[in-house]
């Protein structure tokens, strides 16, 4: 995200007030900001870190509602304000999910080292795909009694794991493995308030 900081901000157009919707403390009815999240080739660590914003979740839930996300179990992403993607792109299904997010979300955020660079899963990039398959399925102790599975339901892996920015345009990058709950909170509150998200040094360094 830091490298994006000289970009013009993406204020989220404030939704129109409507019946039966959340009411802000000032009493105006506001449409909630709709957020979708997903994990592609990631470990769900970034999602876990999201939960680390702890009791602030209650405040957040006043302002936002969740579309597709592990929190809701909605399977397909609909029109949203913000999409948050954890994990890189390692297979064909990841591309379908990612493109659906990009199509539906006004602002797309790459969260965590895996989404930004490929991260831990990209460590397989130095290994030939044939060797990967053989190691996993064919050698002794392998998973599938010497057979390589070919069911169309299984996502087909790419030669290499890619950062999501190589597949769709990404608006913001939130670094960390995972980013701390505080960093996520700061990022979201900036975004929700129409400010250019900006993390302090303390929230960005990890030593």
């Amino acid at each position: 995200m830091s490298e994006q900081s000289d970009r013009s901000p993406h204020p989220i157009p404030l939704p129109q007030a409507g019946e039966g919707e959340a009411v802000s403390p000032a009493g105006d009815a506001l449409k909630k900001i709709r957020i979708a999240t997903c994990s592609l080739a990631g470990c769900f660590g970034c999602h876990m870190s999201f939960l680390d914003i702890d009791e602030r979740l209650f405040g957040l839930i006043e302002l936002v509602e969740f579309d597709r996300s592990p929190l809701t179990d909605i399977k397909r992403c609909g029109p949203c304000d913000v999409g948050i993607v954890e994990g890189g792109v390692c297979n064909a299904e990841n591309v379908h999910v990612l493109k659906e997010f990009r199509k539906n979300c006004k602002v797309l955020v790459a969260i965590g080292a895996c989404a930004i660079n490929g991260g831990v899963p990209a460590m397989r990039n130095n290994i030939d795909l044939w060797d990967c398959f053989q190691e996993v399925y064919c050698y002794e102790g392998g998973l599938e009694c010497g057979q390589i599975p070919n069911d169309p339901e299984l996502p087909l892996p790419f030669d290499k794991v890619h950062p999501i920015s190589e597949v769709v345009k990404v608006d913001y990058f939130l670094p960390g493995c995972p980013p701390s709950g505080d960093a996520i909170w700061k990022f979201l509150t900036d975004l929700l308030n129409g400010r250019e998200p900006k993390l302090d040094y303390e929230q960005l360094h990890f030593d």
């Binding site: 064909a92 044939w130 398959f133 599975p149 070919n150 892996p157 790419f158 030669d159 290499k160």
Partner: peptide, 10 residues
């Protein structure tokens, strides 16, 4: 980038 996996899995 899926071609190798297509070959491997048939």
């Amino acid at each position: 980038a899926l071609a190798t996996a297509r070959t491997i899995t048939g």
